[in-house]
């Protein structure tokens, strides 16, 4: 079957996504590079919470200020300082 070259690369990405959905992949976002001990602590907690920890993707995002954000597929556990501050702001706004 002849595939138009202009869509070939996009089609390849699409099929890759379908075959190996990134739904299972766990990613940890932190504000700075984590040391080995910190990574191990996180892994222990993750195993306790019931997440598969064979493939963990570590990312850095300075915007979260501190703490970590865990992402599994579309589920997000926000333990960052930025998240706490936003919640605080909303609660103050709502209560007054």
């Amino acid at each position: 079957m002849k595939i138009d070259p202009s869509i070939f690369s996009e089609l390849k990405l699409f099929f890759n996504e379908r075959a190996n959905p990134s739904a299972g992949k766990l990613s940890v976002v932190s504000a700075y590079t984590l040391s080995q001990t910190e990574k191990e602590l996180i892994l222990v907690s993750l195993i306790r919470l019931g997440y598969k920890t064979d493939e963990v993707d570590y990312q850095i995002n300075k915007n979260i200020l501190a703490g970590i954000i865990l992402k599994v597929g579309t589920t997000v556990i926000d333990l960052s300082l930025r998240g706490q501050l936003t919640t605080l702001k909303n609660e103050l706004y709502e209560s007054t």
Binding site: T74, T75, V76, I77, Q84, E91
Partner: peptide
């Protein structure tokens, strides 16, 4: 009143 709890949220 509100306690801090670990909450998993869905994003889209």
């Amino acid at each position: 009143k509100s306690e801090a709890e670990v909450k998993a949220e869905e994003i889209g």
